[in-house]
């Protein structure tokens, strides 16, 4: 029965990078975990080795770090201070041991259409899963077109975008949007996305969209994709207690014709975090 790799890892903090305004990237040494991470998977981090705060915090894996011999040596997490847990994370120092539960969730699925351009759309720290996705997928399927649209309220929210720079040199089309126009397009992620989808539809080229970020943003991206009949996968950041399928907390309402009511609750942590956006009942999952 026990065919899975061990999931609880004692990771050592190797670096904390401060991007200002509460944004950080935290790097860990954890070779076993690093070797088993799939695109879009997450880890559940225990902030302290006691019970205050009680619950682990879920984070998308931002990057898989590689050592000199080109082997996976660790992972990094992108986070923003929003409460007590992330506040304590910001105080973590090199050498500290942290318990990580993972990899959790299912890897992002490739689109069935192998010619579709890959659009990655992230808002705030919802940009986190797309670094690994772009890195891995551009290597695996270099023939495709890759576009990453990252949005924030202002340039403060996007300082860590430097991590994507090497990928832009390899052909990733990176577009930034800010609500105040301080960097990139003034507006929201849906503004350039609309232009892109329109242009591709005109040329009869197909696209597939992956989005992650605040629920209203993902609902808007999903609606836009529906307008252009484009596949959209949404990676949800549901409130969860356990992250591994036992608490039944992180449910997402999903259309399911086989059910009496025409829908059911799916556990985001084990069935997701990525769902076909067209099947998500957005009104039922807003916090």
């Amino acid at each position: 029965m026990l065919t899975r790799e061990p999931l609880l890892h004692s990771a050592t903090v190797t670096r904390q990078i401060d991007y200002g305004h509460g944004y950080y990237v935290l790097e860990f040494d954890c070779p076993d975990l690093a070797a088993s991470i799939g695109v879009g998977q997450f880890v559940n981090l225990r902030v302290r080795n006691d019970y205050s705060p009680l619950l682990r915090r879920p984070f998308s894996v931002f990057d898989v770090l590689i050592d000199r011999a080109n082997n996976p040596s660790g992972i990094s997490l992108l986070y923003h201070i929003v409460g007590a847990g992330t506040g304590l994370m910001a105080k973590m120092k090199e050498g500290e041991k942290v318990s990580l539960n993972g990899p959790l969730g299912k890897p992002f699925p490739w689109p069935t259409d192998d010619k579709a351009a890959i659009y990655m759309v992230g808002g705030g720290i919802g940009t986190a899963p797309f670094l690994l996705q772009a890195k891995r997928w551009m290597k695996e399927a270099p023939g495709r077109e890759y576009v990453f649209i990252a949005g924030g309220r202002s340039d403060h929210d996007l300082k860590y975008m430097t991590h994507f720079s090497p990928l832009t040199k390899q052909g990733l089309n990176l577009m930034l949007t800010t609500e105040d126009g301080s960097v990139g397009f003034r507006g929201r992620v849906t503004d350039p996305l609309r232009g892109e989808l329109q242009a591709r539809a005109k040329k009869k080229l197909t696209s597939a969209v992956y989005c992650c970020g605040p629920t209203p943003m993902m609902a808007a991206v999903s609606a836009l994709c529906e307008e252009f009949d484009v596949t959209c996968m949404a990676s949800l950041e549901s409130v969860m207690a356990c992250g591994y399928g036992v608490c039944n907390g992180c449910v997402c309402a999903i259309d399911d014709a086989t059910k009496e009511k025409g829908w059911r609750y799916a556990k985001t942590c084990i069935e997701g975090t990525c769902f076909d956006a067209r099947k998500i009942q957005w009104k039922k999952i807003s916090v």
Partner: peptide, 23 residues
């Protein structure tokens, strides 16, 4: 049973609240 609507859990000092609803 379907259980309760989302959100179903929240953290509290040294604890948590759940309203899962016995799905």
């Amino acid at each position: 049973r379907l259980g309760n609507p989302y959100p179903r859990t929240c953290e509290t000092p040294s604890g948590m609240i759940n309203a899962i609803g016995l799905p």
